[in-house]
Amino acid sequence: MGRSDQYPSVLQTVPGPGDFRGPRMVPGILPLEVRRVSLDMGSRRLLDDLNFTVKSGSFTIILGPNGAGKSLTLRLCHGLLRPTVGEVLWRGIAAREVPKHQTMVFQRPMMLRRSVTANIEYGLRLQGMGRRQRRERIAEVLKLAGLEALAGRAARSLSIGEQQRVAIARAWALRPQVLFLDEPAANLDPSATRAIEGVLRAVHNSGTKIVMSTHDLPQAKRLADEILFLHRGRLLEQSSADTFFDNPVTTEAQAFVEGELLW
């Protein structure tokens, strides 16, 4: 899926929130640079000296066993957590609270106690989008996520796999330039996983940059253009998917790729 040449990296045409004069140019927010980032909780160091850059175009997977620090890394990038040391830069600028034009889907989907449509609409309302535009956008993402038949259902009555698709649709409706996903298919059966991966491919093909964590090796092989391999809070490798799976450098990555039980 590596088609990075397709996507303009500096300027993208994104409709502005509540902008009735038509689309306007929003500067691209990538690259995302994580510089010398460490995260402590109490006396424990959970993330240790992370350094990496995320560029537009590729499907990036943060891979590693449970407890490697994948979720924390995503939360730091998204802006929900602040690093103890180091900085997170978007196009060279330090992030504020949660920067715009990037959204996140969590491992456990959080559904508002309302319908599927209202869940998706909630994020659009927050952006101050007008009603007609909201309706168009909702119809579009419902279709993309294959949720049309469920549009009027109470979101919490859906299965977890369906809820996760609603969460992805809700995030994607905001037309983010970057979408972070934290193990979106963890604990799902193969058919639900396939449905979610299908949605993710569509999101990727639309030009949204995806950064997703997983501990599932086959899933990483199916989706990734680029791999960030985390182990015990440290970034051991960043390379293209082909290089990583064929010639992992570190012994930990070799063990992981060969399917040994790494922790």
Binding site: L80, K100, T103, M110, L112, R114, Y122, L126
Partner: peptide
């Protein structure tokens, strides 16, 4: 505790979050 991450992620301010929670 259940909603915080998601609402902050979607960019809801605290005032808006109180309204959302009151409804939900």
């Amino acid at each position: 505790s259940e909603y915080e991450d998601q609402l902050r992620s979607l960019g809801a301010g605290r005032g808006r979050a109180i309204l959302t929670l009151a409804w939900d």
